[in-house]
Design a binder for these strands. Structure first.
Length: 284
DNA sequence: CTAGGATCCTGTCAGC
DNA sequence: TGCTGACAGGATCCTA
């Protein structure tokens, strides 16, 4: 999924259910999915839940932090008096758990948190809270979109002058939290072709792109991200949270909201890419 | 140093 | 039906 808005949505949701709650047991079903000694987290209360880029950081009272990265297919599903689910949206949000994609089970005083991950790219990692900032991934992460100035963004971009702009903004060292959905959405917003060479961008385009990244992510957070609520609507039918804010992502064949031209799907930087071929012309 | 491709892993879907 | 290859909301490692 799990790009910045989805992780932020999970952070907010889990904070509501897990803050101040004690972890009683951790069951690891897939060794690859849990890095470090689980014992240090047992019988510890959750003190705070933070986020950096796409990484979720669960701080415990004893100075331990559980860093969770969902990568492509991770999901966190809480079952208790109330239920909450976020991450890669699949039927596991509502199915009986554990299921065949459950990798770690964290039992708490007030319920159970399931870490599900079809492709096993994601992980939970045990760190000392004071060492989080020295973690290789966290350390190399650029600033959050809302903390980054135009000048910083431009400087980071210009380390990749010949790369396609889409590849550049997917680089977490350039700006934190952008993934395949928001890259496409932000480039559509700024009317820049994803293949355009980064070094060719004008200041006005860079400005618009940063604005686009912020706006599309904020719109997703405001719409509730990919949660159980957006996955299953109140009447029990399935929703699609992408439709709440996405203008191009998975909308190939539909008319562009701005000009009516049919949105197409293509391939840039090795990733599926959605554009309006009229609003985002090659070579600009 | 950057750029681009392969790689980790499992499941699904389109096309024979 | 059964097989095959492509692809998937991410990041790292390897090579040029």
């Amino acid at each position: 999924m799990p790009e910045l808005p989805e992780v932020e949505t999970i952070r907010r949701g889990l904070t509501k259910f897990l803050n101040g709650v004690k972890i009683t047991k951790i069951k690891i079903l897939c060794d690859k999915s849990f890095i470090g000694p689980k014992e240090v987290a047992i019988n510890q209360k959750i003190k705070a839940i933070n986020r950096r880029g796409k990484a979720l950081l669960i701080d415990l009272e004893n100075g331990i932090t559980l860093m969770i990265h969902l990568r492509m297919t991770g999901q966190l599903i809480f079952r208790g008096d109330e239920n909450f689910a976020g991450g890669h949206p699949t039927d596991s949000f509502v199915n009986e758990l554990p299921d065949n994609q459950t990798r770690v089970i964290i039992e708490l005083e007030n319920g159970t948190l399931f870490f599900n991950d079809q492709r096993k790219f994601g992980f939970i990692k045990v760190l000392e809270t004071v060492e989080v900032e020295n973690d290789k991934f966290i350390k190399s992460l650029a600033k959050e979109p809302w903390d980054m100035t135009f000048a910083e963004f431009k400087e980071n971009l210009m380390h990749h002058k010949s790369a396609p702009i889409k590849a550049t903004i997917l680089d977490q060292k350039v700006i934190a939290g952008v993934g395949n959905i928001y890259a496409d959405e932000a480039l559509y917003y700024a009317q820049i072709h994803p293949s355009y060479a980064t070094g060719m961008l004008k200041d006005a385009q860079i400005e618009k792109l940063l604005e686009g990244i912020r706006n599309v992510m904020q719109a997703s957070i405001d719409s509730g991200g990919s949660t159980m609520k957006t996955y299953v609507k109140a009447d029990g039918t399935k929703g699609d949270y992408l439709r709440l804010f996405a203008k191009v992502f998975r909308r190939e064949g539909e008319p562009c909201e701005r000009c009516g031209t049919e949105i197409i799907k293509t391939r840039v930087a090795g990733r599926g890419t959605h554009i309006c071929p009229n609003c985002q012309k090659e070579g600009r």
